[in-house]
Design a protein around this nucleic acid. Structure first.
Length: 274
DNA sequence: ACGATACCCTGATGGC
DNA sequence: TGCCATCAGGGTATCG
């Protein structure tokens, strides 16, 4: 499940292989994954990729000029973007939906078995922020407690459901919400409304720290996440609650609770999280 | 208007 | 061994 740290790991691992490179050709196997025009030009053919920019869980491929087409990729649950050096073949050719051929013979492959991922084609750079990212909240690595507090207290929903809502804050998914709420000692079921500024300060401090550590570890590979070079992450080894359903709390030793909050499986400690 | 739920989709898993 | 049900969940649509 690519969340902010996984998408950032993909971005960092792709940088050196695609930035500054001309896109020579594109092959689309599954047009349904593309939202917007599907012409070669819209898919960056003939353009040089100048920058890779991330906001929340979304990754943008930007050209050199403001008025050139751009791509915004959302990986969904099982989507991956992998760079293949000249001559290399995808580890698994099944569910390969789009292939870009780059200058020099390298290729970038979009693969997504569950097909929740999307590639948005936009006609100019202004549309990335103006259209695609306008609906998203501040990036989770940049949001301040002062920004987040009114957003969380403005809803009666469970704080977990609110944190998963990309319109309030962008980048957190099921893994990092559970990990952050555990670290901050806040129960996921608490109404957003009930959080004090001090609690939101604690929460922000913890999710910033956790996200940065996760990026340093190359993300969490729970099932099939891989970075832009096909490598697994290692942060799943440091999870305190996610995926530890029924096991004991590392802080107090009591049995972790498994519940459904915000429509998602949620693991937390009934004693450490109030 | 808000919040909860259904849906999309495939692969892994477990029970029989 | 094979079959079926269940679960995983990001984002969006739809319903109450």
């Amino acid at each position: 499940m690519p969340e902010l740290p996984e998408v950032e790991s993909v971005r960092l691992s792709l940088l050196r292989h695609v930035v500054g490179k001309l896109v020579r050709h594109v092959r689309v196997n599954k047009p349904q994954v593309i939202v917007g025009p599907r012409t070669a030009r819209a898919l960056l053919v003939g353009q040089r990729i100048a920058r890779l920019q991330r906001h929340g869980k979304q990754l943008a491929f930007l050209g050199e000029a403001d008025d050139q087409p751009c791509l915004v990729v959302g990986l969904g649950m099982t989507g991956s973007l992998v760079y293949l050096p000249p001559g290399a073949k995808p580890a698994d050719p099944k569910h390969v939906h789009v292939i870009w051929e780059m200058e020099g013979g390298g290729r970038m492959v979009f693969r997504d078995p569950r097909r929740f991922g999307r590639i948005h084609t936009l006609s100019c750079q202004a549309d990335v922020k103006g259209k695609r990212w306008a609906v998203l909240g501040p990036d989770a690595l940049r949001v301040t407690p002062r920004q987040l507090w009114p957003r969380l207290t403005g809803t009666r929903r469970a704080v977990k459901a609110a944190l998963l809502d990309q319109r309030l804050v962008a980048g957190l998914g099921n893994i990092y919400v559970d990990e952050s709420l555990f670290a901050a000692g806040i129960a996921p079921t608490r109404p957003g409304q009930s959080l004090s500024l001090a609690e939101v300060q604690t929460l922000v401090r913890h999710f910033r720290r956790i996200l940065k550590r996760a990026i340093a570890a190359g993300g969490s590979s729970v099932r099939d996440y891989r970075n832009g070079l096909g490598q697994a992450g290692r942060f799943q080894l440091q999870h305190a609650v996610y995926g530890r359903s029924g096991e004991t709390c590392r802080r107090c030793g009591s049995r972790l609770i498994t519940d459904r909050v915000g429509g998602r499986t949620t693991v937390y400690c009934g004693f450490c999280q109030k």
